[in-house]
């Protein structure tokens, strides 16, 4: 089985989010970038398929040279080969089209992306990619087994979960649950050394257009101060929620 894991290069979850150039660009100053958490769960599941079922695992990112450390980290975790499509990831549709080309050229059986990246939260790349290449698709995937060309996938639904049978080629939008938090791997020294020697191939972008553009950003209005209610006076809290906040 040939697996492709799509890796988004995103600000660390603790990052302060600021904008520059008249609020038109994300300010990367002082921001640490990491593998998108949803993708990391997918990558770890892919490593399981590699170790238990002899799958090969490639990782891909659409982005500039600055994303290479993130791809190297994925190699250090255990991926075999990394591919970087050399283009600025302008919107989800553009990224999906680039990934579709990589997926088709490489003849992958299973493509694991994240249900969304935590920067722009588009949540569109996996579905678009599946539709572009005519593969089966399961989103918010929290369980995945592959047996030959058949797959069983569990997805999170509102209020529960749902299990489906499907077949390869398959695209999943993954998240926590594909593996547990405790299964995530921190690259060790040997992994990091080996990653330096693994191939990281840069390919040029195919000609594709973006469907949308983020023209401006805005931060939420600052919050007013919290109203503290004395622990001995919870009637007051009930009253505030009823008459002031009008939520009960």
């Amino acid at each position: 089985m040939k697996i492709l894991v799509c890796i988004s290069h995103v600000p660390d979850t603790t990052s302060k989010i600021n904008f520059t150039d008249g609020d038109t660009k994300f300010d990367t100053n002082g921001v640490q970038f990491v593998i998108n958490p949803n993708d990391e769960f997918g990558l770890t599941r892919a490593m399981w398929f590699k170790e238990k079922q002899g799958a090969s695992v490639d990782v891909v990112n659409v982005g500039g040279a600055e994303t290479e450390p993130t791809l190297r980290k994925a190699l250090a975790i255990g991926a075999d080969t990394a591919i970087r499509v050399n283009a600025e990831a302008t919107d989800g549709a553009f990224v999906a089209k680039q990934l579709a080309k990589v997926a088709q050229d490489g003849g992958y059986d299973l493509i694991i992306a994240g249900r969304e990246s935590i920067d722009y939260n588009g949540g569109m790349v996996p579905g678009m990619l599946a539709e572009l290449i005519g593969a089966n698709f399961v989103n918010t995937c929290i369980g995945l087994e592959v047996d030959g060309s058949n797959a069983t996938a569990t997805r999170e639904i509102d209020g529960g979960k749902e299990t489906s049978t499907t077949s390869l080629p398959l695209v999943v939008g993954g998240q926590k649950g594909l593996v547990e938090e405790s299964d995530l791997r921190i690259p060790n020294m040997r992994g990091i050394m080996m990653a330096r020697k693994k191939p990281l191939n840069v390919v040029e972008a195919t000609d594709a257009s973006a469907d949308s553009s983020a023209t401006k950003f805005e931060k939420p209005a600052p919050k007013g101060a919290v109203k503290l209610v004395d622990a001995g006076n919870l009637d007051e809290l009930v009253n505030l929620l009823h008459t002031e906040a009008k939520v009960i």
């Binding site: 939260n121 469907d211 950003f217 805005e218 931060k219």
Partner: peptide
Amino acid sequence: KRTAFTNKAFSFTEINT
């Protein structure tokens, strides 16, 4: 207007299709 950066910001997004 949509949320971005997991609710840490809003983005004004132009759709051109």
